[in-house]
Design a protein around this nucleic acid. Sequence first.
DNA 1: ACCTGAACACCGTTCAAGT
DNA 2: ACCTGAACACCGTTCAAGT
Lengths: 203, 203
Amino acid sequence: MPRPRSLNPIQIASAALAVIDQGGLSALTMRGVAKELNATAMCLYRYVADRDELEALVVEQALADVDTTAPVDGDWRERVAVLVRRMRVVIGCHPAVVPLLPVHRHRSPTVLRWTESLLAVLAEAGLDGTRRAVALRALLAYTVGAIQLEHLGPLSGGGTTAMAALSPAEFPHLAATAADARRVDPDAEFDGGLEILLRGLAT
Amino acid sequence: MPRPRSLNPIQIASAALAVIDQGGLSALTMRGVAKELNATAMCLYRYVADRDELEALVVEQALADVDTTAPVDGDWRERVAVLVRRMRVVIGCHPAVVPLLPVHRHRSPTVLRWTESLLAVLAEAGLDGTRRAVALRALLAYTVGAIQLEHLGPLSGGGTTAMAALSPAEFPHLAATAADARRVDPDAEFDGGLEILLRGLAT
DNA sequence: ACCTGAACACCGTTCAAGT
DNA sequence: ACCTGAACACCGTTCAAGT
């Protein structure tokens, strides 16, 4: 007697994202997600092979809102910047997902489409072959790294506060820079670094 | 009757690093580290407050080999590159530690000394105040991000292999770039991205 | 065919008890 | 003062049993 499925992957992904958004990464457990769906943990194994697959589902669900279409206005550097900023803004809505990104990015259709658009813009800029591969990698590294620095670490962003308390005798530059850094807002900091990278990318 | 301590923090850090190097991040458990020391898990709580502190200990132990003295030869860009490459090489010896780096970097004396040296070189390059803070952040983001891309993800580096299998119809640029990327060795890729960043950093 | 409860082998952490 | 064993409240995952 075939019984209809009571869940679907989208429901699971939504529930899992809700759980991680609300309770942080440590709340993302098979049992926790199941409870959100009024089901049992074992039931989830009908839909995902294991926790790893659940994590991949969460990452894709979190990134699904990214507009991956290539921008048409502005020079190529501005178009790259727009794509990169779109990714950062959406991830900023789901900070607990950040540690999962480097691990599962290859399995996210959104990431693939976004990367394809980024490469298209780089191609229009006259980059190809190895140079384009290196440029992409550098942009990815900066994006992933900057987002991690922004959201991970002590007190999620209060890191510079801790650094400002360092002994200025032993770490003079660090103490000064920590003080300076607290006056830069995160958006400007991210855009500033991105600009440096894009300037270096000019042939 | 005061009994002498049977362990010290260095022994614990070494044992923990051995465990994670050999068994991966998932092997880093209180019980696992204790077994490596022929002790019980509970005994470790005499030396660390919790797992978080054990992780911080592992990170510092992994990075301890980094030479954090500022290089003296070459122009400032080359000196920055030398510092960054030193960090990458040492981390490459302990790839399982990579996910812990963004979380615990603020508590590592090695990271602090390394950052201080980096800032000193940037100061010699004429950067100060906000511009220097942004430059540091960009360098940190690139370094952290590039190392994560290198060591995390599917099959730890086989990611480009997976991407090369993509449908060239839907992802033409991605498929082409994945093929190109497989011909670039990791060192050259890292240095290439770093060069882009340093070029953009020139005033 | 799908869902469930009980069970297994793990976690981090607490706490009373040993020496 | 330091270490230990037992215990608690969790994990992911398996598997036989229910409907």
